[in-house]
């Protein structure tokens, strides 16, 4: 350091005071942003809860009509009422997705870990999505996994992650496409399970790999986008995987398809 760079003690103290003031200001800004973020989360929670109740009433009334409890409907009337039920159900699923996000964002989600075979959960989710996939003539197949030891995880949360990944694949794979679920093991003793959900759909550009896991983010956010939703499915999947101390990522090629991967701990006690 040259003599010209050397600061007098008073000037040095002045510089330190200035930096400390800046640090305090930055902390105030962080606290304020955190407080606003909590308010936003609370607002989302309240509004979602309040939307759920009237929607539940609409669906129940429509179901009563659809079931002919208030008199037989003509086929066209029945189709129309069935549309109210399915539209309402779709809206409800979106609200539930927001509530799940809010709970995970505000650390209200706790894991209830048990040992279970992941293939059972995958097969359940496949069956649940069969009707939706059939509409687009998509196949959903499980490639392997019969010989895997149990995982030690929260069954409902893992089901949620798989549901979101498979739902996403159905949404972005064109008619006649293929969706698959496969497993591999890694780690020194194979103690970690890698689950893959792949599709031969439209794919995701490398620039958007991070974006798709971000809350409320959609690669095509325009009002005319062909696929609507909360933009929370993959963000929730990421949070739920991370709660298990796992990792989630994707590999993709535009026009060829996407492969989403996540890791879960296997139960070492039972892997004999």
């Amino acid at each position: 350091m040259s003599s010209a760079d050397r600061l007098e003690p008073a000037a040095l103290q002045g510089r330190i005071d200035h930096l400390e003031a800046q640090a305090r200001e930055a902390q105030r800004t962080i606290d304020e942003l955190n407080a606003r973020d909590s308010l936003k989360t609370q607002f989302l929670s309240n509004i979602s809860h309040d939307l759920r109740t009237p929607l539940a009433a609409i669906i129940t009334h429509a179901e009563i009509l659809r079931e002919g409890m208030l008199g037989e409907l003509t086929p066209r009337q029945r189709d129309s009422v069935a549309g109210i039920v399915s539209g309402g159900q779709q809206l409800l699923d979106m609200i539930d997705e927001i509530l799940t996000y809010v709970r995970s964002a505000s650390d209200q989600v706790t894991l209830v870990r048990t040992e279970f075979h992941i293939t059972e959960v995958v097969d359940q989710v496949r069956i649940l999505n069969q009707a939706l996939a059939a509409k687009k003539h998509l196949t959903i197949e499980r490639l392997n996994g019969d010989d895997l030891p149990p995982v030690y995880a929260d069954r409902d949360k893992v089901k949620h992650v798989l549901g979101n990944l498979i739902g996403n694949a159905i949404k972005f794979t064109p008619d006649g496409g293929r969706i698959w679920i496969g497993f591999s093991r890694r780690g020194r003793d194979g103690e970690e399970l890698v689950v893959e959900v792949g599709d031969n759909g439209r794919g995701i550009a490398r620039d958007h790999y991070e974006l798709v896991f971000r809350e409320f983010a959609q690669v095509d956010a325009s009002p005319s986008r062909p696929h609507h939703g909360t933009g929370l499915g993959l963000a929730i999947a990421r949070k739920l995987v991370e709660l298990h101390a796992g990792r989630i990522w994707l590999e993709s090629e535009l026009g060829k398809g996407s492969r989403f991967f996540f890791t879960l701990p296997l139960n070492p006690k039972l892997d004999q």
Binding site: H61, I64, M69
Partner: peptide
Amino acid sequence: DSPLVTDAFSVLFTEA
């Protein structure tokens, strides 16, 4: 506590 829900259930269970 929601009259919307109790109305819907009242119709349902009365008819049932």
